[in-house]
Amino acid sequence: MGRVARARTLRSRESARAEDLDRGRRRTGLLLALPAAVLVGGLVVFPIAEATYYSFTSWNGETAHFVGLSSYSQLLFHTTAIRQIFQNNLSVVLSIPAGLFFALTAAFLTSLRVPGWRPFRFVVFLPVALSWVVIGIVFSNFLTPGQGIDSLLSGIGLHSLALDWLGSTHTALPALLATFNWALFGINTVIFMTGLASIPPEVVEAARVDGAGFFKILRHIVMPLLGRFVRLAFLVTMISGFSGMFGLIYVMTAGGPGFSTTTLEFQIYQSAFTLGNFGQAAALGIFLLLIMLAVTFVINMIGRRKAADLW
């Protein structure tokens, strides 16, 4: 009887201590997480909720009237400017594979560890440290008629290609996108280098023992295993192109000539801060968010299906 009672008090003392510790852990956890949670809640989550609401109103920054889906329907069906803007965003996406192809080539050559790969990696990754303002100012100069690219092209006898790259509606977007992909080249190369380093050498060795040649190994082993890195690089570039290119556009073309280099992201700024149409800007913002979520989802689905085929 006495022994049982003692055991019981021991156990309850132990469980009391465990409970204390548990409470301490929960309290400390809450304390440490609270400031970040409050700041994100107030400065990111709440504004997004507001933006969603305002996208159904006509809002000039002060008064908001409920207008239902009219901002959205305007976006989808009306002005030719909007259609141009969507096409520009599509062009951003379509320019990405070319950039990724060069980055993949560079990563592959770098991972062969040939002489000079270290300085190469340093140079290639360098634009990561440069702002869009710096890159934009440099490339605006480089692309100005009579300067950089002109003298280069004339030097190799291509006078006919010496154009006013940023001044014409036909060439401004390609020039902007070339600059954009130039800036992301380094990040993508590094992502692919990480991918190449993650491939287990045994797998490649086994294929070689089975008699597979260099290109066969490249095509059937290296590329499939790189799949998820290609997806990551594509997503990173797309996110940057859709929602991180504002500075480059602002500096290089300010969205023009006309709407030829205005993307959705840039139009949000224009709608709100030069046209004062905050309601439409909010609708565009929500629309941009939805597009990005959809693309991310689709790319992940493609990845999953490919992986399933592989196994």
Binding site: S243, A272, L288, M292
Partner: peptide, 24 residues
Amino acid sequence: IVFAVTIACMMIPVESMIIPEYSN
């Protein structure tokens, strides 16, 4: 849930929330 919401915020384009942020 709080962690999940925080992480989800990584996907939000700045332009989508900057206008209400500005007015707040």
